[in-house]
Amino acid sequence: MRLFKFIAINLFFYALLKAPGLLAGKPIPSSVITMYMFFIVVTVLLVMTITDEGANELFAPLRSLLEDPSRSLARNILFVLLPIGAALSVYYSAAEPAPPFELRSAHPAPPGAVRAYGKAYELDGLENPLRPLEREDPAAFKEMVREGGEVYFRNCLFCHGAKLDGRGHYAHAMDPLPMPFTGSDTIAQLKESYLFWRIVRGGPGLPREGGPNISAMPAWEDELTEEEVWKVILFIYDYTGNRPRSWKD
């Protein structure tokens, strides 16, 4: 039966998408599953209706169910079950009110200029003033990184963690969780000027889409000097083996 095959294939993919949540405890978000399943069903439908014979065979059981006079009993049962099913699904989705989705852009667009330390910084052309040392004077650069490490372990460690993985002592009390710097999807995607902005302004300086009222990141402008900020930026890139994003080379 082609119709059963159609249903079976779709169920198979649905099970595949559900598996990480059931087996590994890392569920694929329901919003993603919905989108995935929509296109999976469409694709399977397309593949099964390439030829006229295939299309007819696929829809034949449905057509006969709806049109065949001899199957009026099955038809009537279906027409009773469908609304009951719809009602049940609405009931269960409403019975357990789910908290609203979290919509937060982790890396919102930066402003054109940032005001800090009594100066205005144009983020566009802003480079780490210590970065050239890497080429010009590796020994001094190493020293800067070490000092940046000191800044990190005095200030940032508690949330962002000893391994820079976003799992500091306090991290588990926070929502959203502190950003990890390891991996390739946080600082590796950003320019150093972006980090400078995030560090000196902290949570309160985030644009609206970044959820400024839920981030616990302090504005470090009052605690760290400008040079310390640049040093700690050197350190977190160096420690995690990431390179700042650059559009030049």
Binding site: K26, A98, E102
Partner: peptide, 13 residues
């Protein structure tokens, strides 16, 4: 787009 419970289970964004 995560529900809070999904966000907890995954442990982040």
């Amino acid at each position: 787009i995560l529900t809070p419970s999904e966000a907890r289970a995954i442990g982040g964004q």
